[in-house]
Design a binder for these strands. Sequence first.
DNA 1: GTCGTGACGGTTGAA
DNA 2: TATTCAACCGTCACG
Length: 341
Amino acid sequence: MQLLEQTYGEVNQLGGVFVNGRPLPNAIRLRIVELAQLGIRPCDISRQLRVSHGCVSKILARYNETGSILPGAIGGSKPRVTTPNVVKNIREYKQSDPGIFAWEIRDRLLADGVCDKYNVPSVSSISRILRNKIGNLSQPNQYETGKQASAQAGLSYNHIYPYSYPNTMSPTGTKMGSPPGVPVTAGHMSISRAWPSAHTVSNILGIRAFMDPAAIAGTDGYGPKMEDWSSVNRAAFPAAHAVSGIDKSAIDPDIKYAQPSSTLSSYVSACAYSPTNQYGVYSGPAGSYVAPGHHHCRDCLSSWCCAGDRKPPSPLSKQQQQQQHEDLNGVHGASLLTSSS
DNA sequence: GTCGTGACGGTTGAA
DNA sequence: TATTCAACCGTCACG
């Protein structure tokens, strides 16, 4: 079924081919951003590329926000927050105070700096940890009659406050009424989610090539899995990148999969579809008109890591525009981007 | 006509 | 191994 869809795709109202549930090929995503930066209106981009305007809007918004044209990481789960260290600390808290509530444990994890607000386990997770992992310490099987005190402590909050405590927690997760001045993990904003990002160095280093022609030529392009995509991000473009002084790429949590090692043949960040199907369709001059003068950081092999060197957009030459126009015509015509200058 | 947004049906992959 | 769940996707329709 899935294979069928990937093979044939679907056709939207504009006549464009897409695969439901799957991201557009990076070539098209890139083109959307390119055209937008050329001043072409989203509605025109939508028509030219035969991509729904909602999608164009979404991709552009995402690009403006994160600096990446890449889709986010599809599937999977968030990284586990119940690391051994966290469990260990929870165990200690529980041992020292068998009647401690899960939300109190959560607060203590924050206060003690074991976790920050981005990776602190939820109250329900803590409850689960207490129940499953260290329940035998102070929260024995509820069928047991012994150890009543601790067991009751464990049961009590489960019965009264099953999992959520909206009235006892501040928006920051700080327990209401906790002593003022208790540190609640500040300064982790840049960490974002613990979820690995497409914009991690490992991803960038894994870039092998920019475009998979199959991804551009037709629905075959949807075949590669998301984890095989690598960073095609704002680094390829000269537009503003940092927001509020923060390099968004650094905090962008999009993709979580490292890419196979490779070289960057162009400052246009690579888009590795599948490792076995990577061609530098966009690796050459095509990138030149995308971001004239912008080059990889040679130290990190990333075009985005050094956000500071991003340059403002430069207008295309007529020749470049002509080439781009030709490229555009091929986006949905299976002949896209075989060359550009 | 353009654009932002939410619902929807779908895919994906870790747990 | 199969299922569940929560992330994401692009399209579509609406305002």
